[in-house]
Computed example of a mutant assay.
Amino acid sequence: MHILFIADPPESFKIYKDTTFAMMRELQRRGHTLAVCGPQDLVWRSGGLVTAAVRTVRLTGDPVQWFSAEAVAQPQALKDFGAVLMRKDPPFDSEYFYATHLLEQAEREGARVFNKPRALRDHPEKLAIMECPQFIGPTLVSRSAEAIRAFHAEHRDIILKPLDGMGGMGIFRVKDDGLNLGSIIETLNRDGAQTVMVQKFLPAIAEGDKRILIIGGQPAPYCLARIPQGGEVRGNLAAGGKGEARPLATRDREIAEALGPALFARGLLLVGLDVIGEHVTEINVTSPTCFQEIQQQKGFDVAAMFADALEAALTRS
C-alpha cells in the first residue's frame, strides 16, 4: 500500500524523537511504500480531483541521511493512495483550516484520510475539553477582561493561554496577588479581539503533565509525564520539560476508556489526551507525539499499535 504523509518537510525531522518518523519506519517495515508533501502542495482545480505534488521517499536506516527521495515532486490524486495521514504540526491557522476542506473533498472522491478532516476542524485542541466537564477542572473561555478578572477572584491561582498556542507558548500563571494580570490579559486577548482560555491552576503539574495516547479508540498502556524543570510552570517538552514514561494510573485509564471510543467514532484514529492529576487539560488531534519516548523507556512499540489500528481501519472502510 502507498501511504501519503502530509507533514512538515522531512528535512526538518529530529528522527531520534519524531513520531511521524516512527510511523514511517514501522509502515515501511511492514512493506508499505511512503510519499510526503506539505499542505501547501495540495491543489484542487475546478472540475478535477484534489491532487498534491508528492515525493516518494524511502527510509535508509542511516541516522544522518535517513531518507532518500525523488528529486522532483510529481502530481498525484489523493484518492490513489491507500491512506493519507495528516501530520502537519500546529498552529491550526487559516491555511490549516483550508487544507482540511481540500482533504474533505478528497475524501468525497474516495481518499481515506486520518485523522478525518472534519474531525480535525470540529475538535480545536483546547476547546474540545469543554465537551467533557466531568473530567476537567474549572475553566473559562472568554474575550472579556472582566470575566477573566472575576475568574481569578474566585480561584486565586490561574493559568491563562491562547487557544491557538502550541508547545507551551503563551502560557501564563497568575497567583493570588494578581501580579501583572492586567498586562497578561491585554497581551492575550488583544483588547477583546482574541479569545482566551483560563483554568484553575492544578498543583499536580509538579508530578507532570501526562500525555495519554488513544489509538483506534483504545489507550496505549503507558503515558509520558512531561515534568516542569526549575522554576518553569510548563511541562511541555518544547518548553524544557523532562519526559518520564509511566504506566497508566487508574484515573488515566478511566478517562481514556470513557473518551476514546467516542473520539474514534468521530474519525479520530490518533488522539493525545493531556492530563494533569485527574483532569484533562487538552485533547490533541492534529499531530500527537511521544511515541518514541515511550518505546525508548518502556519498550512498548507505540508505532506498531498505530500501524495495527491504521491497517484495521483501512480493512473496515
Rank of each mutant, 00 (worst) to 15 (best):
E146N: 02
G165K: 09
G168T: 04
L103D: 00
Q74N: 07
R45C: 08
H152E: 00
T289F: 15
K88S: 13
A111Q: 10
R108Y: 12
V280I: 09
N180S: 11
A83P: 02
G243R: 07
K14Q: 14
E278K: 06
D18P: 08
N236H: 10
R25E: 13
V84K: 02
A204Q: 08
E186D: 15
S287N: 13
A99E: 02
D62N: 14
A307L: 11
D308V: 13
D191F: 15
V233R: 04
G230I: 00
F114Y: 14
A99C: 10
A153G: 00
N180R: 15
L269G: 04
A193G: 12
L179P: 00
D252S: 13
A7C: 14
R87D: 14
Q199W: 07
K242A: 14
I6M: 15
F201I: 01
K298S: 11
L237M: 12
E104Y: 08
E254G: 04
G272I: 01
K210Q: 14
T289N: 15
P162S: 03
F13Q: 01
A239M: 10
Q229K: 10
A206W: 06
F201G: 02
A119F: 02
G178P: 00
F306P: 08
I3A: 11
F172K: 12
A204Y: 07
R87T: 09
D89K: 02
T187I: 12
L4I: 09
F306E: 13
E26P: 08
P247L: 06
Q229I: 03
F300C: 09
F135Y: 15
G230R: 07
S287G: 04
V174E: 03
K242H: 14
D93S: 07
A262M: 10
E26K: 12
F5V: 05
G260Q: 08
R226W: 10
D18L: 09
F291Q: 11
A225H: 09
M24H: 03
R45K: 12
V285S: 11
G277L: 02
Y222D: 04
G182H: 05
A111F: 15
D176P: 00
A307E: 11
Q295L: 11
I283W: 12
A239D: 05
I159R: 13
N180Q: 09
F264P: 04
I129H: 14
R118F: 04
E131T: 07
Q40C: 05
A145C: 05
